[in-house]
Design a protein around this nucleic acid. Structure first.
Lengths: 99, 99
DNA sequence: AGTATTCTTGACATTAAGTGTCTAAAATAA
DNA sequence: TTATTTTAGACACTTAATGTCAAGAATACT
């Protein structure tokens, strides 16, 4: 499930109007609409307010959010999977060194 | 080996002055210096010209380049490795669907 | 040493990308 | 139909990325 869909789902579950949620997230209603349509990504701060307003686990939202960002960056690349491997390797090595 | 180091290594191997390489890559010498210092990332276009000028495999350069970009984006995150997994999963699924 | 050349640094200008605001039209609900 | 909500697009504003320039630092040469 895409982040946009998830956010919409939770807003509707709480029976909030965009206008109401917009107030809580402190943005224009138009932004909420675009976020749920996938036209825009929420900022990190907005995402956090979303989590509070809709009572969703922030870490989960954030992981999804970052994943989509990374995905957008590499999706067109032939070498996408290799890139991911390279990055994972580097992160694992860093982790080891920080123990 | 970092991209910056690799590029420097190959320039020196070819015994090119920064000024000479700068001409071939079509940027100011200052940019070359910063790229080799890791202060700046080359653009995609510059990277390609680099590959031609220094006779390096572009795909390899590009993979390294993208890896560092992705790495920068997630390195501070607790969930970095999970993010990579999520992205990899999505890419694999897309691949499957495009067969 | 002194001079010439190369490399580096930082300040600033320019451009591109992301974000926010507003309004009018489209969709939906009453 | 009327009222309300949602959507779409134009535009302004902000921030990040990139490019340009010039002066200082480092290196190589004689």
């Amino acid at each position: 499930m895409y982040l946009s869909e998830l956010l919409k789902y939770h807003r509707e579950k709480k029976a909030l109007l965009m206008r109401e949620l917009a107030y809580k997230v402190d943005v224009d209603t138009a932004i909420i609409s675009k976020i749920e349509k996938g036209d825009r990504k929420p900022t990190k701060e907005q995402l956090h307010k979303y989590a509070v307003a809709l009572d969703i686990d922030y870490t989960h939202l954030h992981t999804l959010w970052l994943s989509e960002k990374v995905y957008q960056e590499i999706k067109e690349e032939e070498t996408a999977l290799e890139v991911l491997k390279v990055v994972a390797k580097r992160i694992k090595e860093e982790k080891k060194n920080n123990e």
